[in-house]
Amino acid sequence: MIGSIEVCCFRLQQGQLQLLISQRKTEPFINQYALIGGGIAPQQDQHLDDTVNRCLQQKTQLQPHYLEQVSSQADPHRDPRGWSVCFLYLAVFRPQQKVHANCKWVNVYDLLNSPVKLAFDHKALVETALNRLLNKSQYSSLPVYFLGASFTLPELQQCFESILQTQLPKAAFRRRLNRPEIMLETGEKDHSQNRPAKLYAMAAPKQLYFFDQLMKGSPTKALT
């Protein structure tokens, strides 16, 4: 049986949710685009997370800001070579990170709505990971991982709204997010706008914060 990991790498760039894909150099599906992934190396990897980080470093030179296992898939049809099992991961990256020449960032919704095919069952895997991202962003601080090391409150709200494609009430949003468990003031300000804004940083970079209620707002456009 063939065993592998596949990683849905997401980032926000100018308000667009983007996915990282790479062009395959070997059969099957040579020259076709696919998710970032690779085989498990028992001599090197003590955990599946080790496999993910090794493959990301080798194929993209990127280190994820957030990483989560989403699901596992196994059947005799997803790979033309026979039975295979894959472990699907969701990874979040900060914007404006350069990658290898055979990789590219694409708008995830444009990809899913286009006739372009990804290798294996990767388009279905993208839908699975995207659903996890959207659902979890409604009840946790996950979108904060898309931001840089420091950010303003307007940038934080724009981040949530871009992912959820929902306009959120400003006062309610700030009451929910502006907590010491989630973020802390850095003591510095962003002077790029007419009115300087306080800069914040994540309080616990390796820990998600879960809300007791879902985010609610007005849809800005239909999710497709």
Rank of each mutant, 00 (worst) to 15 (best):
A201Y: 08
S140W: 06
F29Y: 15
G37A: 04
G148L: 07
L130A: 03
Q46H: 08
A74D: 05
R195G: 01
H122R: 07
F120S: 06
E6F: 00
C8H: 06
V70N: 05
A222N: 13
M1A: 11
K104I: 13
K221H: 13
Y33S: 13
C86A: 14
L35K: 10
N31T: 15
Q43I: 03
E188M: 05
Q138D: 02
K189I: 00
G38V: 01
Q13C: 10
Q63E: 00
L134H: 08
G15P: 04
L20I: 02
G38T: 03
L118Y: 04
F87T: 01
C159L: 06
Q138S: 08
L164Y: 09
Q165A: 04
T186W: 09
I5R: 01
Y89P: 09
R174A: 03
V85I: 14
G217P: 04
Q63N: 04
P180V: 09
L118D: 08
P80C: 05
S22I: 12
G187V: 12
P28K: 06
D79V: 02
M202W: 05
P80Q: 07
R132M: 09
H122E: 12
K170V: 08
F160R: 04
R24N: 03
V7G: 02
T152L: 06
C55H: 13
R132P: 02
F211E: 09
L118I: 03
S71T: 11
L12M: 04
C86Y: 12
S71H: 13
S4F: 13
P28H: 05
C103M: 04
N131A: 10
L125P: 01
D45V: 00
E127V: 11
T60P: 07
D212V: 11
P196I: 10
P169Y: 12
A119R: 07
K98M: 11
A201S: 14
A119C: 03
D50C: 00
Y145R: 06
D50R: 00
Q158H: 09
L90I: 05
A171M: 09
Q18N: 06
S192P: 04
